Simulated scan of single mutants.
Amino acid sequence: MAIEFRLLGSVDARANGEVIDLGPRRQRSVLAVLLINVTQVVPLDRLMDRIWGERQPRSARGTLHAYVSRLRKALAGTDDVSIVQQSGGYLIALEQLAVDVHHFRRLIAQARIADGERALALFEQALGLWRGEAFANLDTPWLNQARDTLNAERRAAELARGEVKLRLGQHLDLLAELPARMAEHPLDEGLVSQFMLALYRSGRQADALNHYQETRLRLATELGASPSILLQTLHHQFLTADPALDVPQSASARTLRQLPDSSNHVTGRTANSPHCRACSQDSRSP
């Protein structure tokens, strides 16, 4: 019977599409810890620490054994998974890719060594596994830390996908999707740089330059910092109409098909105009 475990959202399990009742939150926390460490023995003391942290009840060991016993019963109808006790701890025996966290990481690793449309498809497949916050509704110190780690991996994957889209000439797609993510992380300079470049390649150089100035002011006001070398270099390239910022040659045909009527946008560079009008106006900006 095929089984899958999902941690990238609420913690659940499905066998042949049917939802398995995994019990109360603490019990699902035990399962989540075992699944993150699939095929590895988790010592009892470590497992208790990851479930209760410093607030372990006196009955923690007995309660933990009871949770595992109930999880075994819940999963008893499947042949693909078992929870075994060995070497002073518990191990969940399961095909690693049956757990969405491990499937996500495998797909991301494959995407990073792939090219073009193949890389984009792998990133899309990996990010499509997310259904919300990892371990939704579970709250333990260790799982909260693991959630932060996974959120960082997700954001890194989204940035990498954005770079692939830029290489493929899909900057208009980024213009549609980036504002929502920047609203959550307005000072993420990786997101800002992608958004600025997408604006620039869409013929909206003035908007790109304005966004740089807004980000520069916000960094100074909120963090007392200056833009990174990445953003400063990109800004200088805008001002000099650096050809390196143009859509890669292999993506040019696709990009031309995507572009809307240019009359709806700020006038951009042309073959006879090495510097855009907005660049000239902003040439004195830092």
Rank of each mutant, 00 (worst) to 15 (best):
G128L: 02
S262M: 11
D21N: 14
L122S: 00
R118H: 04
L178C: 06
A241P: 03
R131I: 09
L129C: 12
C279H: 02
H211T: 07
L223T: 09
N144R: 05
E4F: 07
S226V: 04
F104N: 08
E222F: 10
K73E: 00
L199Y: 00
Q232T: 15
G162I: 03
R70V: 07
V101G: 01
A32R: 07
A180D: 15
D246W: 02
D188Y: 04
Q205K: 05
L7Q: 11
E158I: 10
R112C: 02
N151S: 14
N37M: 05
R204E: 07
P248G: 05
D282G: 15
R181D: 14
F238R: 01
G169I: 03
P274A: 09
A2N: 09
L187W: 06
G88C: 10
S69P: 04
L127Q: 06
L256I: 10
Q232W: 01
G88Y: 12
R118F: 00
P57S: 05
A198W: 01
N272D: 15
A134H: 04
R181T: 04
A66V: 08
Q237C: 04
N144G: 11
L199R: 03
R155H: 12
A66P: 07
R112I: 09
D148I: 14
R181I: 00
S280Q: 12
L159G: 09
V68D: 03
S59T: 12
D261A: 07
V33C: 04
T215V: 14
Q110P: 08
L138V: 04
K165I: 00
N37H: 08
S29I: 05
V30W: 00
G162C: 13
A253C: 05
L234Q: 08
V99H: 00
D148Y: 10
L75V: 10
A134Q: 06
R6K: 13
L71A: 05
S285L: 11
G53W: 12
S10D: 15
A176N: 09
